[in-house]
Protein backbone atom coordinates (compact mmCIF):
# COMPACT_ATOMS: atom_id res chain seq x y z
CA UNK A 1 0.00 0.00 0.00
CA UNK A 2 1.47 3.32 -1.10
CA UNK A 3 1.02 6.08 1.46
CA UNK A 4 0.52 9.68 0.43
CA UNK A 5 1.70 11.20 3.70
CA UNK A 6 1.51 14.74 2.36
CA UNK A 7 -2.18 14.42 1.46
CA UNK A 8 -2.84 12.71 4.80
CA UNK A 9 -1.13 15.56 6.63
CA UNK A 10 -3.10 18.18 4.67
CA UNK A 11 -6.45 16.44 5.28
CA UNK A 12 -5.67 15.89 8.97
CA UNK A 13 -4.72 19.54 9.41
CA UNK A 14 -7.91 20.71 7.67
CA UNK A 15 -10.25 18.44 9.64
CA UNK A 16 -8.59 19.31 12.94
CA UNK A 17 -9.24 22.97 12.14
CA UNK A 18 -12.88 22.13 11.43
CA UNK A 19 -13.15 20.38 14.81
CA UNK A 20 -11.51 23.32 16.57
CA UNK A 21 -13.89 25.79 14.90
CA UNK A 22 -16.91 23.76 16.07
CA UNK A 23 -15.63 23.44 19.66
CA UNK A 24 -15.16 27.19 19.68
CA UNK A 25 -18.63 27.66 18.16
CA UNK A 26 -17.31 29.94 15.44
CA UNK A 27 -20.16 28.90 13.20
CA UNK A 28 -19.77 31.62 10.56
CA UNK A 29 -16.20 30.52 9.97
CA UNK A 30 -17.45 26.93 9.77
CA UNK A 31 -19.86 27.91 6.98
CA UNK A 32 -16.91 29.17 4.94
CA UNK A 33 -15.38 25.69 4.96
CA UNK A 34 -18.28 24.40 2.86
CA UNK A 35 -19.14 24.18 -0.80
CA UNK A 36 -22.62 25.68 -1.11
CA UNK A 37 -23.79 22.43 -2.65
CA UNK A 38 -22.41 20.43 0.30
CA UNK A 39 -24.54 18.26 2.59
CA UNK A 40 -24.17 17.82 6.35
CA UNK A 41 -25.82 14.56 7.36
CA UNK A 42 -26.33 12.79 10.69
CA UNK A 43 -28.06 9.53 9.73
CA UNK A 44 -30.29 7.47 12.02
CA UNK A 45 -29.45 4.22 10.26
CA UNK A 46 -25.76 3.52 9.62
CA UNK A 47 -26.59 1.15 6.79
CA UNK A 48 -28.52 3.79 4.86
CA UNK A 49 -26.93 4.94 1.63
CA UNK A 50 -29.76 6.94 0.06
CA UNK A 51 -29.80 9.69 2.68
CA UNK A 52 -32.12 11.96 0.68
CA UNK A 53 -34.87 9.35 0.87
CA UNK A 54 -34.15 8.27 4.46
CA UNK A 55 -35.10 9.82 7.78
CA UNK A 56 -32.00 11.33 9.35
CA UNK A 57 -31.23 13.10 12.61
CA UNK A 58 -30.03 16.02 10.46
CA UNK A 59 -29.88 16.54 6.70
CA UNK A 60 -28.66 20.08 6.07
CA UNK A 61 -28.09 21.77 2.76
CA UNK A 62 -26.66 25.29 2.64
CA UNK A 63 -29.97 26.94 3.56
CA UNK A 64 -30.56 24.60 6.52
CA UNK A 65 -26.98 25.10 7.75
CA UNK A 66 -27.60 28.84 7.86
CA UNK A 67 -30.96 28.38 9.64
CA UNK A 68 -29.40 25.96 12.14
CA UNK A 69 -26.62 28.39 12.94
CA UNK A 70 -29.14 31.19 13.41
CA UNK A 71 -31.05 28.94 15.81
CA UNK A 72 -27.91 28.02 17.76
CA UNK A 73 -26.81 31.62 18.11
CA UNK A 74 -30.04 33.67 18.30
CA UNK A 75 -30.66 33.10 21.99
CA UNK A 76 -34.30 32.22 21.24
CA UNK A 77 -33.83 28.49 21.76
CA UNK A 78 -34.07 27.58 25.43
CA UNK A 79 -31.95 24.47 24.90
CA UNK A 80 -29.04 26.59 23.67
CA UNK A 81 -29.17 29.27 26.35
CA UNK A 82 -26.92 27.39 28.74
CA UNK A 83 -24.66 26.70 25.82
CA UNK A 84 -22.91 23.38 26.35
CA UNK A 85 -19.16 23.21 26.12
CA UNK A 86 -17.84 20.54 23.81
CA UNK A 87 -14.43 18.96 23.33
CA UNK A 88 -13.93 16.76 20.31
CA UNK A 89 -10.99 14.72 19.17
CA UNK A 90 -10.40 13.27 15.74
CA UNK A 91 -8.00 10.46 14.92
CA UNK A 92 -7.43 7.37 12.73
CA UNK A 93 -7.59 9.38 9.51
CA UNK A 94 -7.66 7.29 6.37
CA UNK A 95 -7.77 8.49 2.79
CA UNK A 96 -10.17 6.21 0.93
CA UNK A 97 -9.51 7.63 -2.52
CA UNK A 98 -8.46 10.76 -4.35
CA UNK A 99 -10.13 11.00 -7.75
CA UNK A 100 -10.45 14.11 -9.94
CA UNK A 101 -9.80 16.47 -7.03
CA UNK A 102 -12.34 14.80 -4.75
CA UNK A 103 -10.80 13.26 -1.65
CA UNK A 104 -12.83 10.78 0.37
CA UNK A 105 -11.63 10.38 3.93
CA UNK A 106 -12.90 8.80 7.12
CA UNK A 107 -11.81 9.12 10.72
CA UNK A 108 -12.69 8.28 14.31
CA UNK A 109 -14.32 10.96 16.39
CA UNK A 110 -15.22 11.47 20.04
CA UNK A 111 -17.25 14.40 21.23
CA UNK A 112 -17.54 15.16 24.94
CA UNK A 113 -20.30 17.46 26.04
CA UNK A 114 -20.62 19.08 29.45
CA UNK A 115 -24.09 20.12 30.51
CA UNK A 116 -26.09 20.23 33.70
CA UNK A 117 -26.41 16.44 33.69
CA UNK A 118 -22.65 15.97 33.59
CA UNK A 119 -20.30 14.88 30.83
CA UNK A 120 -21.69 12.84 27.93
CA UNK A 121 -19.63 11.20 25.22
CA UNK A 122 -20.62 10.62 21.62
CA UNK A 123 -18.25 8.29 19.73
CA UNK A 124 -18.74 8.45 15.96
CA UNK A 125 -17.27 7.57 12.62
CA UNK A 126 -16.97 10.56 10.31
CA UNK A 127 -16.92 10.40 6.53
CA UNK A 128 -15.97 13.39 4.42
CA UNK A 129 -15.87 14.28 0.79
CA UNK A 130 -13.38 17.11 0.37
CA UNK A 131 -12.70 19.16 -2.73
CA UNK A 132 -9.32 20.81 -3.20
CA UNK A 133 -9.50 24.57 -2.91
CA UNK A 134 -6.11 26.23 -3.47
CA UNK A 135 -3.87 25.10 -0.60
CA UNK A 136 -6.83 23.88 1.39
CA UNK A 137 -10.15 22.09 0.94
CA UNK A 138 -13.89 22.71 0.89
CA UNK A 139 -16.34 20.22 2.38
CA UNK A 140 -18.63 18.62 -0.19
CA UNK A 141 -20.15 16.14 2.26
CA UNK A 142 -19.87 15.34 5.96
CA UNK A 143 -21.58 12.26 7.37
CA UNK A 144 -21.59 11.77 11.13
CA UNK A 145 -22.36 8.19 12.13
CA UNK A 146 -22.95 8.47 15.86
CA UNK A 147 -22.55 5.03 17.41
CA UNK A 148 -25.97 4.83 19.06
CA UNK A 149 -27.96 6.97 16.62
CA UNK A 150 -30.19 4.05 15.63
CA UNK A 151 -30.94 3.26 19.28
CA UNK A 152 -31.51 6.53 21.07
CA UNK A 153 -29.81 9.88 21.52
CA UNK A 154 -30.37 12.72 23.90
CA UNK A 155 -31.24 16.14 22.51
CA UNK A 156 -28.37 18.06 20.96
CA UNK A 157 -27.82 21.81 20.83
CA UNK A 158 -24.59 22.14 18.90
CA UNK A 159 -23.06 20.73 15.73
CA UNK A 160 -21.26 17.41 15.50
Amino acid sequence: MKLDTQLLADVTAFLNIEADILDNKDYLQWLELWLESGLYIVPVDHNATDYANSLNVAYDDHEMRILRIERLTSGYAVSTQLSEKTVRTTSRFRILDDVDGLVRVRCAYSLYENNKNGIRCYPANLQFKLVRDGDSFKIAEKIVKIMNSSQYLTTVSYLF
Binding site: V57, A58, A77, V156, S157
Partner: peptide
Protein backbone atom coordinates in the same frame (compact mmCIF):
# COMPACT_ATOMS: atom_id res chain seq x y z
CA UNK B 1 -36.27 16.54 10.41
CA UNK B 2 -36.64 20.33 10.58
CA UNK B 3 -38.71 20.20 13.80
CA UNK B 4 -38.48 16.71 15.29
CA UNK B 5 -35.80 14.53 16.76
CA UNK B 6 -32.60 15.03 18.76
CA UNK B 7 -31.29 17.75 16.40
CA UNK B 8 -34.62 19.18 15.26
CA UNK B 9 -35.42 22.85 15.67
CA UNK B 10 -38.26 22.01 18.08
CA UNK B 11 -37.60 18.81 20.04
CA UNK B 12 -34.44 19.92 21.90
CA UNK B 13 -36.29 22.94 23.27
CA UNK B 14 -39.25 20.79 24.33
CA UNK B 15 -36.74 18.43 25.94
CA UNK B 16 -35.15 21.28 27.88
Amino acid sequence: EHFQGPMGFGTPDDGE
